[in-house]
Computed example of a mutant assay.
Amino acid sequence: MTPTRRALATTLALTALLATAPTTAQAAGTPQHPWYFDTLRVDDIWEHTKGEGITVAVIDSGVDLTLPELQGQVLDGTDLTASPQGAHVDTDGHGTDMAALIAGTGEGQGIQGLAPEAQVLPIRVTNGGMTTELPARWAAAIEYAVESGAQVINISQASPHDDPTRQAMAAALATAARNDVLIFAGSGNDGEGLNNPSAPNSLEGVVSVGAVDRTGEHIPYSTYGPQVTLAAPGNDVPGHCDGLSGPACVREEGGTSSATALASASAALIWSQHPDWTKNQVLRVMLNTAERSDDQRRDDYTGYGIVRPDRVIVDGEGDPGDPDSPPIFRDWEAGLVPPATPEPTPETTPDDSAEPAPGPEAEAAATSDDGSPLPWILGGTAAVVLVGLTGWLLLRRRA
């Protein structure tokens, strides 16, 4: 362990008394009270906010709203898969677990989420496994989430990153940025393999989230690199170990999927407490209040640090700064071309000395020559990005 990582581990251990305190059933972690609730002082956070007024879009395998902890928490959503069955169908279970980590109520001994009064907008893009159409579906899903009023988008998925992916998602990511929407995506679970960058987490406009354990240490499977922006707990996190029909459990080994859901929930809590803030301000305070080592420098393993929404909500820390200034992706956002808008029709000033009104031929010509460009179409990228996309692999760690 490096001195930097040792310092961070010591800080978190002292904060939560997790490494040395005698364990009890609750301190050891349960689906209703996972270990990070103590670290993040969740009970204190909930005295201020539980995420009310915030919608988090979960782009994943669907969300099963019949689970007790998700009843009343899930909106209608949409299914973008090749054979749609509905956004509330989840044969894989992954999307449902992510939704529960964000907004679960703990009812019926189910998963207790970090922001239990936030609403989940389910957008089904896969039922697990491989698909050649994932980037196009991500793009359509982001556009749908923006149009549906989501403030936060959670993508606990990853695939190889190449130029077709960037092209497929460029317009959708620009749409989200223009509409003040935050996007979080898992950094991937390839840290022990080739550690190749993946999408969408390494694309401009997406906050990449890595995974740490209960000591604050980077988990080896968590993909690392310059794209990592923040980190959150990835192991010993609630889920369903035997499928959605079984009871909730605590998974000893999870993934950056879970870390991403907890980062999204943290943003929802902060935004709920400060509804007048922009995405730039929410992200800025998340960055400058994140738990990090004493040298306060960013690294490729946890980015700017581990999310600490309690510091913002309970302690009032963090300077939101300029609402219009992005804390990251500045050059990218500055270069975004605004969508085209119709040019105004020139107005004429009444003049008593003007010539007589034009005849029928001239009037017909005037009214048929609009001069305004076609409106900007949000879904315009979906049809052109499917050509040539092969071999997409969904990289998700299953406990």
Rank of each mutant, 00 (worst) to 15 (best):
E204F: 12
P197M: 13
N235C: 03
L203W: 01
V237G: 04
A232Q: 02
A211W: 11
C241K: 08
D213S: 05
S258I: 06
G234C: 06
G254Y: 03
G225V: 14
P247C: 08
Y224E: 01
E253W: 12
D236V: 00
T223K: 02
S208G: 11
A259T: 08
T256C: 07
H218S: 05
G234V: 01
Y224T: 01
L230F: 04
N235G: 10
A199G: 05
G225I: 13
R214T: 11
S258K: 12
H240K: 12
C241A: 13
H240C: 04
G239C: 10
T229D: 05
E252H: 04
A261N: 05
G246M: 07
G246P: 07
I219A: 01
L244F: 06
C249D: 15
E253H: 12
P200L: 09
A199K: 13
L194V: 00
S257K: 10
H218Y: 04
H218D: 02
G246S: 07
Y224S: 01
P200Y: 11
Y221N: 00
S245T: 08
A199Q: 06
Q227Y: 10
A259V: 09
N196V: 06
L203F: 06
G255R: 07
Y221T: 01
A199C: 11
I219G: 00
V209I: 15
P247A: 14
D236C: 03
N195T: 06
P220M: 00
L244K: 13
Q227A: 14
G246H: 10
P226F: 03
S222P: 01
P197D: 10
A261L: 05
G205K: 13
A232F: 01
N196K: 06
S198P: 00
N196L: 14
T223Y: 00
G254S: 02
G255W: 08
Q227H: 15
L194S: 09
T260V: 11
E252A: 08
S245A: 09
H218C: 02
Y221R: 01
V209N: 02
A232N: 02
A211C: 13
T260C: 15
H240I: 03
A231N: 03
S257N: 15
N196D: 07
P226L: 02
P197T: 12
P233C: 03
T229W: 12
E204D: 15
L230K: 03
